[in-house]
Every structure is written in structure tokens, then in C-alpha cells.
């Protein structure tokens, strides 16, 4: 995780969490406690993301990088090699390893709240061309599905990710996707 990214994402996230807590009608101390818990979950998530990045660096060391090429097969081959190496290195990975149950609760609340407050057209756009498949950890993102556009204003409410990782929405899930390797790192169900 880049320090720059962390420092930019945390304040917005704390504000979001505080608003959610107050909306829930909890007492001040309970709200404070919830903010602390949610802040800890996010901090833990950032650590797990950093660990994933480090693991993939080690796992793909020595493999040719994706670089500018006239030959399309070089792109697909390298993407496949990166994915295969990461799958081997994370052979025991399970759902929740990166997106833990703690941070999943926070993300679900942020996404549901964002969706609920959108006008009807905004909700339609958010679910426009969203893929309908059940994700699996280490799965190659299926080429027959588009990558659903992630709403810019929702993106600003989630912790910023390092280069090479991105959030994407499926019909019922949020996935964490490794862009270069085109694999699903982890996912959260029931986000709408």
C-alpha cells in the first residue's frame, strides 16, 4: 500500500463510518466504539492488501513483465503466467483472507448506503451491465463478462488501492481484482 494512498483514503473513510454510525441511532460511546472497530478493520484490510502485493511480487519474480508490445499473444501469455504463479503462491487462499468479515461489514454498509441514496436513474446506472456470476478466489475473471463500471463517487468512499488492484461490482458481490494477472483476489457477497 502506498503511503500517499493511505493518507488520502482514511479521512474520507472515517467520515463515512461516523455518518453511518450516527444514522444507526447509536449512543455517542457506542458510535465511537463502532468507528474504532471499523477503523481497525480498514487498517487490517490495508495490511492484508500490502501483504498480497508483497506475496505477488515474490511469486512473479523472474517472470516477464507486461510491457508494450505489437504482439497480442505476449499480453495474454504473460497475463496467464502471472495468474498461474499467483494461484500457486496462494493455493490455500480462502474467501475472507483479504476482505475479512470485519471489513466486509463496513464495505457492505458503505455500498448499500450509497446505493440506497441514489436516485432511480443512478441505481440503474450502477447496476448497468453488471456481470452475473458467482466469484471464486483465484478465479480468472471470465472474459465473456464486461468489467462493470465502478461509480466514481462510491470509489472515493472506499480505501484507495495500490496500482494493479481494483474493486469491481458483480450482481451481488464486490470483488478485489488483480489487474495484471486478471484474477479475483477475494470477494464479498450481498453488497446491494
Amino acid at each position: 500500500m502506498k503511503p500517499r494512498a493511505q493518507s488520502r483514503s482514511r479521512p474520507a473513510f472515517v467520515v463515512t463510518v461516523a455518518i453511518l454510525a450516527s444514522l444507526a441511532g447509536t449512543t455517542t460511546s457506542a458510535a465511537d466504539r463502532r468507528v474504532d472497530e471499523q477503523g481497525s478493520s480498514v487498517a487490517d484490510f490495508n495490511k492484508r492488501v500490502t501483504a498480497y502485493v508483497e506475496l505477488t511480487k515474490r511469486a512473479t519474480q523472474g517472470l516477464p513483465r507486461l510491457t508494450r508490445t505489437d504482439v497480442p499473444s505476449e499480453i495474454t501469455t504473460r497475463e496467464g503466467q502471472l495468474g498461474a504463479a499467483i494461484r500457486v503462491a496462494r493455493a490455500s487462499a480462502r474467501p475472507g483472507d483479504v476482505l475479512t468479515s470485519g471489513v466486509a461489514r463496513v464495505f457492505r454498509q458503505v455500498i448499500k448506503d450509497d446505493f440506497r441514496h441514489r436516485p432511480r436513474h443512478g441505481q440503474k446506472v450502477m447496476r448497468d451491465e453488471v456481470p452475473h456470476f458467482h466469484p471464486k478466489v483465484n478465479q480468472t475473471y471470465p472474459g465473456e463478462w464486461p468489467l462493470a463500471t465502478f461509480p466514481a463517487t462510491l470509489l472515493a468512499k472506499l480505501p484507495e488501492l495500490p496500482d494493479g488492484l481494483e474493486y469491481r461490482l458483480l450482481s451481488e458481490a464486490l470483488i478485489l481484482r488483480d489487474v495484471s494477472a486478471n484474477i479475483i483476489v477475494d470477494f464479498i457477497l450481498d453488497v446491494f
Binding site: L66, T67, R68, D70, I75, E129, L147, A148, N182
Partner: peptide, 16 residues
């Protein structure tokens, strides 16, 4: 939204 972002490495697309 139908494009794999790794298209950015395809030289004829000039995305550097």
C-alpha cells in the same frame, strides 16, 4: 467496460 485493461500494453493502441 468490455475491454481488458491490459490492452494498454498493446502498442497499436498507443496507451504507453
Amino acid at each position: 467496460n468490455h475491454d481488458d485493461p491490459n490492452q494498454r500494453f498493446y502498442a497499436p493502441f498507443n496507451m504507453a
